[in-house]
Simulated scan of single mutants.
Amino acid sequence: MKSLWQEWLGAIAFYTCLPISPSWPIQLAGAAKWCPWVGIVLGGMLWGVQWLLDFLQIPSPVASVVLVALWLALTGGLHLDGAMDTADGLAVRDQQRRLEVMADSRVGAFGVMAAIVILLLKVTSLSSLAKGSVLVWVLVVGRLAQVWAIARYPYLKPQGTGQIHKTSGVFPRDFWPSGLLVLLLNFLLPLPLGQLLFGLLLILLIPAWFQWQLGGHTGDTYGAVVEWTEALMLAAFTVGSAS
């Protein structure tokens, strides 16, 4: 039980900017399996902020920008940075240089374009959605896709921020927190079957696409998996609400 608590604190410390007391023991090894639960914490916070903005009658487009900005602040831009680096790497035709480009701290044009598309998808989708509960599902599904990417595909670098999650994972045993969370969420905040199936499809296809392009995953692609899954899942909710 103590180890699970340390893993949970490690997940909070690694995946968010939420304050953690220096006296609290954290453990990054094994923490990745808890990242969908981090998603429910962040999603719940964003839901609460959305309720407040609605109560204050903030116009929907402005409220959506505020929510996405807070979304970025809560994660420290960790996942978006990975999506930008991944886009820059995939823009290079020479596959041997892709990882080198992704490791470069400088942002290229393709990284900027990827960030713009992701942020626009999130802002415009949120501005047309009424239920803040969808935020909880979106943040959970995005992180479920990351857990699947870690479990399913090889890690491409001998060192890196994501390596500890790959080497410390014990799969399929590590999926039990995610499975429990999906059952709990589907009981408390049930989704239409089509949207749920679309989310599950994204969990499978987006990590597979990056695997096909690169031959494996890195910490950057883990972030890209989260961002693109979140953005496309939000778009799916928009389609569902309009139908």
Rank of each mutant, 00 (worst) to 15 (best):
S3R: 13
Q6F: 08
L9D: 01
P19W: 03
W24I: 12
W24Y: 15
P25G: 13
I26L: 03
Q27G: 15
K33W: 05
C35Q: 07
P36N: 06
P36H: 00
V38K: 00
L42M: 02
M45H: 02
G48F: 02
G48W: 01
V49K: 01
Q50K: 15
Q50D: 11
Q50P: 01
W51A: 07
L52H: 06
L53N: 01
S64N: 03
S64T: 04
V66P: 12
V66S: 07
L78Y: 12
L78V: 06
G89C: 08
G89K: 01
Q96N: 10
R97C: 13
L99V: 09
A103H: 06
S105V: 13
V117H: 12
S127W: 12
G132A: 15
V134S: 08
V134L: 14
V136C: 02
W137H: 06
V141C: 03
V141A: 04
L144I: 15
Q146P: 10
R152Y: 09
R152M: 09
L156H: 12
L156C: 10
L156E: 06
P158F: 07
P158T: 04
Q163Y: 14
H165Q: 11
S168V: 08
S168T: 07
G169A: 15
P172G: 04
R173I: 11
G179L: 15
L181D: 02
V182H: 05
L184T: 03
L189N: 03
L189Y: 03
P190K: 06
L197S: 10
G199H: 08
G199M: 11
L202S: 02
L205Q: 12
L205N: 07
G215Q: 12
G216T: 07
G219S: 04
G219C: 04
T221R: 12
W228C: 05
E230P: 14
T238N: 11
V239H: 10
S243T: 10
